[in-house]
Write a protein that binds this DNA or RNA. Structure first.
Lengths: 190, 190
DNA sequence: TTTTATACTTATTAGTAAGTAAGTATTATA
DNA sequence: TATAATACTTACTTACTAATAAGTATAAAA
């Protein structure tokens, strides 16, 4: 059983994930990470030879995170509206730490990203949209949620409300996000 | 009457506006601009001493643009739904040129922007939200549009749908934006 | 106990960023 | 016609970027 020290790599990843959501791919550097960890620049390159390697790992961890969230929600003893509440809460929490969602972050920088990473971003985005659509469809079938569009379209509407909602909150304040969140929930109940 | 040559300055501004929407503030440089115009780097600095000066002018031109659009829409002999159509079309056109809206662009980079510019961004954003809210309110009063939320909240929902819609279109394709656009319009008519 | 892998540091490189100082050609003005 | 403003270019500086090569300390494996 190897006692390999993966702490530093995990911390690099964690800091990089935060920076991605706070300032975006083109606005952070390896030295931003190394300074926070009191290590040298080259130590970051030891764990992630190139910035593309780091970005790929960041996106992959979000794919893992959302797969876990998806599984968690499928099995959770919650009504559809509350599952959406869990999802919306994740966005609300982003605002507290001055962040936007990862999909909004990579979308803004999309054409400056390495093509290999773009493919993973597409996968991540479809995963999240699919997850929301599944919850919506489930809620509609059970008569818990009410909307006229098909579930995929409604998922697009909700995703864009939340993603741009946290972006807008940076500019006009958190209460605008709260209004958006409340409106989404109210529409689905009526 | 001075025949001052302002062509270069206008072209710099135009290219910079495009770059802002295509790659964002932190992903373009003065050399990206100077190369497109076949001038030297320092010539760009002649017209805009610092990148902050350039950014401020970019944001200010968008404020002007939206003020003009607002005035145009107020006086236009159009139904509220068609005024919103004009607004939504502007977003659809962004996708054709691989761009996102300026508000989404600056929101992503918000905490890396000079504070003075942030204030202008706040103004720009409130201007656009107010414009949409006015059209919505007018349509509601005239019985042309139907929605339960107050006009400001509905404006937030529509703005976020469109802003994140063009971002999402980069990742999953334009048809997702079209679905969003159609859904927004359908909701307001029913 | 020697060897090897791990996890770094030190030191450096090549490239690019924003920004500036000084010079030049052209045009407008006095 | 001399002067001054405009719109640049040339040449440069400072700072930062990602990335790499070579060295070092530590710990695990043979």
């Amino acid at each position: 059983m190897s006692a390999k020290n993966t702490d530093t790599k995990q911390e690099i990843l964690s800091i990089a994930r935060d920076l991605m959501k706070k300032v975006g791919y083109n606005a952070f550097s390896y030295s931003d990470i190394s300074k926070q960890l009191n290590i040298k620049n080259a130590a970051v390159h030891y764990h992630y030879p190139t910035k593309e390697d780091l970005l790929a790992d960041i996106v992959n961890t979000y794919i893992d995170d959302y797969k876990k969230l998806d599984e968690g929600l499928v099995n959770a003893p919650l009504k559809a509206i509350d599952k959406l509440g869990v999802f919306a809460d994740r966005y609300a929490q982003l605002i507290e730490v001055k962040s936007i969602c990862i999909i909004g972050s990579v979308a803004s920088d999309f054409y400056t990203l390495p093509p290999a990473v773009r493919e993973r971003v597409i996968l991540l985005t479809k995963l999240v949209l699919g997850m929301v659509a599944n919850v919506l469809e489930e809620g509609k079938v059970k008569g818990e949620l009410h909307f006229i569009e098909d579930a995929n379209t409604r998922a697009l509407l909700i995703m864009t409300n939340l993603a741009a909602g946290v972006q807008l909150a940076r500019i006009t304040g958190k209460q605008d996000f709260d209004h958006i969140r409340n409106a989404i929930m109210l529409q689905l109940k009526k």
